Simulated assay, not measured.
Amino acid sequence: MLGLLLSGMAFAADRININTADASTLQQGLANVGPMKAEAIVAYRRQHGPFVHVEDLARVKGIGTATVERNRQRMTTGARQAPAEAPPRRAAPASVPRR
């Protein structure tokens, strides 16, 4: 059981950060991404800023949703989801003195 957990952690660590990887890394690490698509990803990132979600990669010309889905487990944006904030607490109503 521990081996499975550790192998899953190693797999997650090997993901390619599409916000920081260079074209060579993108080309070598992602399926159906050749040199032109890898350069297009880097150029899109320079022009539009970092990707928020891996799905945003489909906005790059030449990258479709099929390519995103095929590579979903190989990619990360490097962003960690922040824990949901607790809703603000309401102040207790002030007690009203009896007469």
Rank of each mutant, 00 (worst) to 15 (best):
M1F: 07
M1D: 09
G3Q: 11
G3K: 14
L4A: 14
L4Y: 09
L5D: 03
L6W: 06
L6E: 08
L6Y: 04
S7G: 06
M9I: 12
M9R: 14
A10M: 09
A10E: 11
A12T: 05
A12H: 06
A13R: 12
D14C: 11
R15A: 00
I18K: 06
I18W: 01
N19M: 11
N19H: 00
N19E: 10
T20L: 05
T20V: 05
T20K: 13
T20D: 10
A21R: 07
A21Y: 07
A21K: 09
D22P: 04
S24K: 14
T25L: 09
T25S: 09
T25Q: 12
L26S: 04
L26M: 08
Q27M: 13
Q28W: 00
N32D: 15
V33T: 01
G34T: 02
M36D: 14
A38D: 07
A38M: 08
A38I: 11
A38N: 06
E39S: 13
E39Q: 15
A40E: 01
I41F: 03
I41E: 01
A43G: 08
R46M: 07
R46H: 13
Q47K: 14
H48F: 01
G49H: 04
P50A: 14
P50Q: 14
V52C: 07
H53Y: 11
H53W: 03
H53I: 01
V54W: 05
V54P: 04
V54Y: 07
E55C: 03
D56K: 07
D56N: 15
D56L: 00
D56F: 03
L57M: 13
L57N: 03
A58T: 11
R59V: 04
V60C: 11
K61V: 07
K61G: 15
G62Y: 02
T65Y: 01
A66S: 13
A66M: 02
A66R: 13
T67P: 05
T67C: 01
V68Y: 04
E69W: 08
N71R: 12
R72G: 05
R72Q: 12
R72W: 02
Q73L: 14
Q73C: 03
Q73N: 12
R74M: 05
R74C: 02
R74I: 02
M75F: 09
T76I: 08
T76M: 05
T77K: 12
T77A: 06
A79E: 10
R80L: 13
Q81L: 12
Q81I: 05
A82P: 06
P83A: 07
P83C: 00
A84N: 04
E85I: 09
A86E: 10
P87G: 02
P87D: 00
P87M: 07
P88E: 02
P88A: 12
R89Y: 03
R89D: 03
R89K: 14
A91T: 11
P93T: 02
P93G: 02
A94E: 13
A94K: 09
A94Q: 13
S95I: 01
P97E: 11
